[in-house]
Simulated assay, not measured.
Amino acid sequence: MTDAETTRIVAWSAELRLVHTRIRAALEVTRQAVRDGISSAQVSRDLLLYCHGFCAALDGHHQGEDRALFPAIEAAHPELAPVLRSLTQDHSMISHLLQGLREAVDRSAPPVELDQHLEGVAAIMENHFRYEEKQLLTVLADLELHAAVPDVLGPL
């Protein structure tokens, strides 16, 4: 194995943490926009962009994991199949919550309602990220997966 291959293999765990950090930051920007209030049309447009951008980033991340990362992990570590199924179920639940957030934003729901949607997404997302990192980071340190990061972990 070359140094470049070793670097790429070790980097999957770092890449996962980096993507999670970026998604957490996008969520915080979105939540701050709600907290700052949406009294003007400009702020409403900004909030719409933040929410849709955050939703797209999180959805893209989970789709990449479901499509590329989890099958590679399961092929290398079949004993993790139950963990991967649980994480995939989380993805489905989070997708449902994100759809509710999108719908609330699209109909200009009041800030209190938007904050409730974001709080729900934040709670499930954080629990999911922690579990995923606990279960998979050591596996990712050894995973031989030769693919582009956006294809595996989403467009972030």
Rank of each mutant, 00 (worst) to 15 (best):
T6M: 14
V10T: 13
V10L: 15
V10F: 12
A11L: 08
A11Q: 10
S13K: 14
S13R: 14
E15V: 11
E15P: 02
E15Y: 06
L16F: 08
R17T: 14
H20F: 09
T21G: 13
A25T: 12
A26L: 12
A26T: 06
A26I: 03
A26W: 02
E28A: 13
V29N: 10
T30Y: 02
T30K: 04
Q32F: 05
Q32H: 10
Q32W: 05
Q32M: 08
V34D: 04
V34W: 01
V34F: 03
G37V: 00
G37A: 01
I38M: 07
A41G: 05
V43H: 10
S44V: 10
L47N: 04
L47E: 03
L49W: 08
L49C: 08
H52D: 12
G53L: 06
C55L: 03
C55A: 12
A56Q: 09
A56T: 10
A56N: 08
A57W: 00
G60T: 07
G60V: 06
H61M: 04
H62M: 10
Q63M: 07
G64C: 02
G64W: 07
E65F: 00
D66Y: 02
D66I: 02
R67P: 00
R67E: 11
F70T: 01
F70W: 11
P71E: 01
P71H: 00
A72E: 01
I73A: 00
A75V: 02
A76Y: 02
P78C: 01
E79P: 01
P82D: 00
P82W: 02
V83N: 02
R85I: 03
L87W: 01
L87R: 04
Q89Y: 06
Q89N: 13
D90Y: 05
H91Y: 07
S92L: 11
S92Q: 14
M93I: 12
H96M: 10
H96N: 09
L97S: 09
L97D: 11
L98D: 07
Q99T: 14
L101A: 13
R102W: 03
E103Y: 07
D106N: 15
D106I: 09
S108C: 13
S108K: 15
S108N: 15
A109W: 09
P110I: 11
P110V: 13
V112M: 12
V112I: 14
L114C: 09
D115C: 06
D115Y: 09
Q116L: 14
H117P: 04
H117S: 10
E119T: 15
E119L: 15
V121H: 06
A122H: 15
A122K: 14
I124H: 09
E126I: 10
H128V: 03
E132W: 06
E132C: 06
E133G: 11
K134C: 12
Q135P: 01
L137P: 09
V139P: 02
V139Q: 08
L140I: 05
L140R: 05
A141D: 15
A141K: 13
E144D: 14
E144T: 12
L145M: 04
H146L: 10
H146Q: 13
A148G: 05
A148Y: 06
V149M: 04
P150M: 01
D151N: 11
